[in-house]
Structures are given as C-alpha cells and as structure tokens.
Amino acid sequence: MTTQPPPSLHPTAIVDPLAQIGPGCVIGPWCLIGPDVVLHEGVKLHSHVVLDGQTTLASGVEVYPFVTIGMAPQDLKYRNEPTRCEIGERTVIREHVTIHRGTAQGHGLTRVGAHCLIMCNAHVAHDCEIGDGVIIVNNVVMGGHVEIGDGARIMGAAALHQFVRIGRGALVGGVCGVEADVIPYGSVLGNRARLVGLHWIWLKRQGVPAEEVQAMRRAFRHLYPRRSDGRYVLEDRLAEVRRDFADHPRVMEIVAFMEAPSRRGLVRGAHLSSGAVETEGA
C-alpha cells in the first residue's frame, strides 16, 4: 500500500487551523477553507476554491478554480443551522460550480455521490441528492431537494424544478425544463420535458442483456402507448406490467418509481413514431 505524502498548501491559501486536511491533499493558490471542512486523502483544489460549513470531500475529489462548496443555501428560511454538504470519492467538479449545503427543513444534507463529473457553471442547490456516476453538463441548474439517481446524464443548460426526481440511468436533454419526475432509464427532451423513450445507449454500455432490454422495450411501449384509445388509465397499465414483467428487475424498478410518492408527478410521454423511442445519449 502506497503511503500518501503530507498535504501541500500553497502559501496564499487560507486554511482554518481547525479544518481537517488529509494526507496527499493539494490546496492551490488563493483557496479558502473553513473550520468545519474535512478533506480526505488525495483531494486536489486547483485554485480560488472556497469551502465553507460542515463540508466533507472524500478521497480523490478534484475541484477546479472558482468553485464554492458548502456555502449557505439560497433559502429565505435558512437561519444558519448546522447543516452539511458531502462530495463522494473521485468526483470531479469543474470551474465556477456552486454547491450549497442543506437546510433544516430538508434533509440537512446536500450530497453528491462518487465518480461524478459536474461541468462548468452548474448549480447544485440545497438538499439535493445526486447518486454515483452522474454527469451534469455545463450550465445545468436545479432547485432544492432534487434527487438524481446513479448514472443519470443531465445535458447542458437543463433546468430541474425543485423536488423533481430523476431516475437511475435517465437522460435529460440539453436546454430542457424538467418540471416533473423522470422514470429510471427514461430519456426526456424538449423545452418542457417530454418522455421520448428509454436511454438505450446507457443500457448497452452497462452490459444489460439483450433479453432484458427487449423486455424493457415492451414494458415501456405498454406504459406509454404511441396512440392512446382512452380505455386504459395509467394505474391499469402499471398493474398489467407488474404482472407480466415480474421477473425483470429493471422493469420493476421503473414501476416502483412511478408508484412512489411524488411532489411533482411524472413527465408525460410524447406521441411517438416508431423511430423516436430509440433515443440515445451520452
């Protein structure tokens, strides 16, 4: 096992003596680190990074210039309660990203998972929960309490309404306003998000067996028929899919997500041509 060297602090960095700085950390020029910050081993702050509040960066996190993490939330109800912010291991946070700590009215925690990539100018609001392996592209903004499942892809300049849930492996298209929940593995596009299919390319890259992908395709087309004759309500379609696809865990994951309590409801499906459900993304 390789022993990490002691932390390296640039002379211009301002680090509170109460902050906990792990071995192998590199803190670049003009960084500002508050007293309740914890950096695990191998964290790298390039320059001009501000870390405040009860903020923890796990091992191997890399933060680029002009990022702020753990600052007070943009919530008028916030009264300086001791809430937290956590960043998972090996996550990369690019220039000008802002990530705010939680609120007492929410979970008290804003969390970004491991192995994520958050690109320039994105904003992660208070009490957001972002899973592992998520990619958030430039200029994405989100309100408070947003939940994003593992492996989701949020394309550039998308806007996520507060309390929205984005399911595991979902794709949100660029410049897309998301006002309701996106099912796991769903793909949404449009100025106001509409469900246009499943995120097939992500499923392929994850090595999902072909028979499982075909089952998901059939279940999706039953849940979101291209032409509705008005005879089936969604609850009936869910019951039929639950009965007919009980042996397919990813289909059951979609059903469980759709049946879970929601503050925002579900993004509606568009009426599609046969080609439109083959949407692929990053």
Score class of each variant (00 low, 15 high):
242 R>F: 00
217 R>L: 07
226 R>I: 01
232 Y>T: 07
216 M>N: 07
228 S>R: 12
221 R>P: 01
228 S>Y: 08
243 R>V: 07
237 R>K: 13
227 R>M: 13
243 R>C: 13
220 F>M: 07
245 F>E: 05
225 P>C: 03
233 V>L: 06
230 G>H: 08
230 G>V: 09
235 E>Y: 01
238 L>M: 12
241 V>T: 00
230 G>M: 09
217 R>S: 08
222 H>T: 07
240 E>T: 13
245 F>G: 03
243 R>H: 15
240 E>F: 05
219 A>H: 05
239 A>V: 05
215 A>L: 10
235 E>Q: 14
238 L>E: 12
241 V>M: 04
245 F>Y: 14
241 V>L: 03
219 A>L: 04
219 A>Y: 06
242 R>S: 12
228 S>C: 10
237 R>E: 06
240 E>S: 12
218 R>P: 03
237 R>C: 04
241 V>G: 01
216 M>I: 07
229 D>A: 10
222 H>W: 08
243 R>K: 15
236 D>N: 07
226 R>C: 06
233 V>C: 05
241 V>R: 04
224 Y>H: 08
216 M>V: 04
217 R>H: 11
243 R>P: 04
220 F>I: 02
236 D>W: 01
223 L>T: 08
244 D>G: 00
214 Q>Y: 07
217 R>Q: 06
230 G>C: 10
245 F>H: 11
218 R>S: 12
228 S>E: 15
232 Y>M: 11
243 R>D: 15
242 R>A: 14
231 R>D: 07
245 F>S: 06
242 R>K: 14
226 R>Q: 09
227 R>T: 14
224 Y>L: 04
239 A>G: 10
216 M>S: 05
244 D>S: 11
241 V>F: 08
220 F>S: 00
214 Q>E: 15
220 F>C: 00
244 D>K: 04
234 L>E: 12
237 R>H: 05
242 R>Y: 00
231 R>I: 02
234 L>N: 06
239 A>T: 09
233 V>M: 05
217 R>V: 03
225 P>L: 08
215 A>W: 10
228 S>I: 08
227 R>H: 15
